[in-house]
C-alpha cells in the first residue's frame, strides 16, 4: 500500500495523543505498518498539541510541510495554524466549536469566525469536512469524547487500510471501562457526520 500521513492537532486536554495512539494500536492489530509521533512536555500547558500517524511503508515518524494526506483538527483555528502541512489534495477534518485561547478570551486578540476559517480551508484543499464535533460528544453523553468523535470522522471521511470493527475493538479494550460505551457512541456519531458530509 502507499503511505498515508495523518496529522492530528488540538489543544492540551482534548485527548489528541490518545486518538493517535489508539489509531496506531488499531493499525498494528490490522497488520498495517505504522509509526506514531507525539510531542510531550511544555506543549501541554494549554498550548497546541500535535501528533502524527503514518500508515504504510514510510518509517519517518514526522510529517513535513505540504505532505499530510489528512489533517484532523480538534479546533477550527488550529486547522488554520496547521495548514502549512497540507497540499491541495489534502483532506481536512475539523471540529467547528471554538476553544478561544486566553488572549482572545480577554479581548486582546481577534478570533476568526469558524465559518470564515472553514471557507478559507475549502479554498485551499480538495475536501473539508467540518462539523460541531463537541455537540456530538455531548450527544454521546461524554463531553470528553471529542477525540473519539474526530477519530470516527476520520474513518467516515478517509479511506483507511484499517476496518472500523478493529478500530472500535481497540477503543473498547484500551479506554477506561466506564467510558468505553460512550466512546464508541461518539466514534459512531463522528463517523456518520463525516460520511454524510
Amino acid at each position: 500500500m502507499s503511505t498515508q500521513r495523518i496529522v492530528f492537532v488540538g489543544v492540551g486536554g482534548q485527548g489528541n495523543l490518545l486518538a493517535s495512539n489508539l489509531l496506531g494500536q488499531a493499525a498494528l492489530a490490522a497488520g498495517v505498518q505504522v509509526v506514531v509521533s507525539e510531542i510531550h512536555g511544555m506543549a501541554q500547558r494549554g498550548g497546541v498539541v500535535e501528533s502524527a500517524v503514518i500508515l504504510g511503508e514510510a518509517t519517518s515518524p514526522i510529517v513535513s510541510n505540504a505532505e499530510a494526506d489528512v489533517l484532523v483538527s480538534f479546533e477550527p483555528v488550529e486547522a488554520l495554524r496547521l495548514l502549512p502541512k497540507a497540499n491541495k489534495e489534502t483532506l481536512i477534518i475539523t471540529n467547528t466549536r471554538p476553544m478561544p485561547p486566553f488572549t482572545v478570551a480577554i479581548g486582546a486578540a481577534p478570533y476568526p469566525p469558524p465559518e470564515e476559517s472553514v471557507a478559507y480551508l475549502g479554498k485551499k484543499v480538495k475536501k473539508v469536512v467540518a462539523f460541531d464535533g463537541q455537540a456530538l460528544a455531548e450527544e454521546a453523553k461524554n463531553p470528553l469524547s471529542l477525540n473519539m468523535v474526530m477519530l470516527g470522522a476520520l474513518f467516515g471521511a478517509a479511506e483507511l487500510p484499517i476496518d472500523v470493527k478493529t478500530m472500535k475493538k481497540v477503543i473498547r479494550s484500551q479506554t477506561k471501562k466506564r467510558f468505553a460505551a460512550s466512546n464508541v457512541k461518539a466514534f459512531d456519531l463522528g463517523f456518520k457526520a463525516a460520511a454524510a458530509a
Binding site: 494549554g46 502549512p84 478561544p100 488572549t103
Partner: peptide
C-alpha cells in the same frame, strides 16, 4: 513533490502560548 500552499489572506490564528 507536492507544492506548499500559498497562504495569503489566511485569517490569522490567534496565538496559543502555554499558560
Amino acid at each position: 513533490g507536492t507544492a506548499e500552499l500559498k497562504l495569503t489572506g489566511m485569517p490569522a490564528p490567534p496565538g496559543r502560548p502555554p499558560n
